[in-house]
Simulated scan of single mutants.
Amino acid sequence: MKSSAFVHRAVVMQLQSGGSDSDANRFAVLAHLSYDIEDPFAVTATFSHDGRVLARWRLAREMLAEGLRRPVGEGDVRFSPRYARGWHELRMDFYGEHRGDGERHHAVVHAWAPAVERFLEESYRVVAPGDEHVEVDGFLSELLANG
């Protein structure tokens, strides 16, 4: 295991506005991707713009990696690879609460896939896929002691 138990990478991504997938309907957001050995199955993505945090999501690291190769996800988070104009992107769909009209809030973010791959490779140097471990016994003891 690498001496550092935390990986962080800031990546400029594009938030898609409106219903069109046109480049004109995208604006830059900064995403802070982080991986912590204390939560070895997850990646935290914090999206910000003009110094304001727009959203923070905990994502399954394995699902994020799979999303670079094929569409994954059925619930609130869905990933799919996109290839256009020589670019390999990761499309991330995030679904939130229901709106008054019955539809759900929906955000689409596009990331340059090689940047996400580099972040994942760094996280694999900290904890290799399949070597994730969660200390369940300590958690259960603490939970039962606190009732």
Rank of each mutant, 00 (worst) to 15 (best):
R70D: 13
R69C: 07
D21E: 15
A42R: 14
R85Y: 00
R9N: 05
L64P: 03
A107I: 02
T44W: 14
A113E: 03
R69F: 00
V77Q: 11
V7T: 08
M1R: 12
S20Y: 08
H110V: 01
R91W: 12
R69W: 00
Y124G: 02
E74M: 12
H98N: 05
A111Y: 05
H106P: 03
S17P: 01
A31H: 04
L59Y: 12
E121T: 13
L59N: 05
S80M: 06
R125L: 14
R85V: 04
G138Y: 00
H98F: 06
G138S: 06
H8V: 08
L144V: 11
H133P: 00
R58Y: 12
E121N: 13
R82T: 04
D131G: 04
Y95M: 03
V12M: 09
R91A: 14
S34G: 04
E132G: 07
F47T: 08
F41H: 13
Y35E: 07
E142S: 06
V11W: 03
V134L: 12
E135N: 13
V136R: 05
R58M: 15
S123R: 10
A5M: 11
F27T: 00
H133E: 09
Q16N: 07
L15G: 03
M63E: 08
F27M: 00
T44D: 15
L64W: 15
E135Q: 11
A128D: 14
V72I: 14
E97C: 02
F94A: 12
S4C: 05
S17Y: 13
V77H: 06
F41M: 15
N146D: 09
V109N: 08
S20T: 12
L54R: 08
A10Q: 14
